[in-house]
Nucleic acid binder design. Structure first.
Lengths: 237, 237
DNA sequence: TGCCGTCGGCACGCTAGCGTACATAACTCG
DNA sequence: CGAGTTATGTACGCTAGCGTGCCGACGGCA
């Protein structure tokens, strides 16, 4: 637990709350560091805390009964982890893996559910976030099915860059392969192609985004569509 | 055209409500017939009504900006259409296509949102339904990515049979291809394989399920997983 | 009875991505 | 510096599914 004063509240779900609601809410949070690779919750496990990332970010991963796994969503400073509690269910549907180290605001689950009752603006905002997530899940479903690895990789890098807030991403091909549900060798080929086009540069576990507009063009429209929906539904009112 | 059993004309989201809540709710509904092929709402369109299917059922289809489309969920008598309103958003995220003709209870959107405020049990139940849907979306995402057409077809037939309440399904290969996001020829091959194993029989637009346990075995575990989650989260309390 | 639209079987070459395996290169740490 | 570990490049044959097109069979309807 560290002091709140160090880090500005950059979580976009909390940033625009009315001052009174936000103060009460923040006072009930503590700030924690998320370590890369940390597993915050396993599927069917109990959600003990909610997390509002500040500069860390989290991959939400579906695990099938045959143990195939695929990243289905990401939660960074635009979102939160533990959204199921808004629906009154404290069982985690997905695995949550810290993908970018950094800080997050954390609150105990029971306290969160209580506070929600007296925070109408936050509550409404989280419901809208849930709506966006459902859409993104649906879109990802089709995207993963139809689009090629290179375009999906481009999309994924853009999503990660947004949440990392940096053009340098700590990512190995191996890790990317897990996220996209493809072979490591498949990522290597796609990465080579993106690098040859001057869109990224990478070297031993670090990928640098060189040409963001170019990367957007190389990605499928799903990246832009997701962003547009988020902006529309969660615009500051 | 008959089923093995008489269909109970009840929607499972409404069936177990306390009598007072249910009576109020039902009184505000009217019963409508859903015609096969009818499009209840287009993505980005406004949700004007919610539907609680009785023996009809609806496919929810994601449409990408490049016009690829894929069924991502189904709503039959176990569910509803228009769930976004529970989140306070009256814009449809997905296309809703009537896939099985039949009846449904319908209510105007504004009235639904009002009634929700005075129906705590229904409200809680619908939030739980939303939780199940999110899970199913996530699972489908991975399923569509990893599993083969034959297994996915088996899963899809089982899901459809549950909602149709009959072992005879009106389905062409063409239609199935659209739902699963594959070629018509791909469905033909998968259907031939399932028929050769004695699990189904089909003939010009009608598929009969012959061996349900066998079909479950031929499907990926995703069918069973979805059912188990629904049963757990939406069990009669 | 014959016509025609719909439905399903099948075949062709093609491509993306698979599973696997091995080689090199770059860092880490003793 | 040298040994071990990690990250990436690449190659092989293989498979599922693609896009397309054609054909026959069925069945509704005149």
């Amino acid at each position: 637990m560290t002091s709140l004063t160090q880090i500005p509240v950059t979580n976009q779900l909390l940033a625009q709350l009315p001052a009174d609601e936000r103060d009460v809410f923040m006072a009930a949070c503590d700030t924690v560091e998320l370590a890369f690779g940390e597993v915050l919750v396993e599927p069917a496990g109990q959600i003990t805390h909610v997390y509002f990332p500040l500069d860390g970010f989290i991959s939400l991963i579906a695990i099938l009964v045959d143990d195939n796994r695929l990243e289905v969503a990401m939660a960074g400073r635009e979102g939160m982890m533990g959204i199921s509690l808004v629906l009154g269910v404290d069982e985690a549907p997905l695995s949550a893996l810290v993908q970018g180290a950094g800080s997050a605001l954390r609150m105990e689950a029971a306290r969160f559910q209580l506070l929600l009752l007296s925070s109408p603006v936050l509550h409404q905002r989280l419901k809208r976030y849930l709506y966006v997530m459902m859409n993104q899940l649906a879109r990802s479903s089709a995207c993963n099915h139809f689009h090629q690895v290179e375009a999906r990789l481009a999309r994924w890098l853009l999503m990660t860059q947004d949440r990392a807030g940096s053009d340098r991403l700590q990512l190995t091909h191996e890790f990317l392969a897990m996220m996209l549900g493809v072979r490591r060798a498949g990522i290597t080929l796609a990465a080579i192609a993106l690098q040859a086009r001057g869109l990224i540069h990478y070297h031993r576990g670090e990928i640098t985004v060189l040409d963001r507009p170019g990367l957007i063009e190389a990605s499928c429209g799903c990246y832009t569509a997701d962003r547009a929906l988020y902006a529309k539904v969660l615009a500051p009112s």
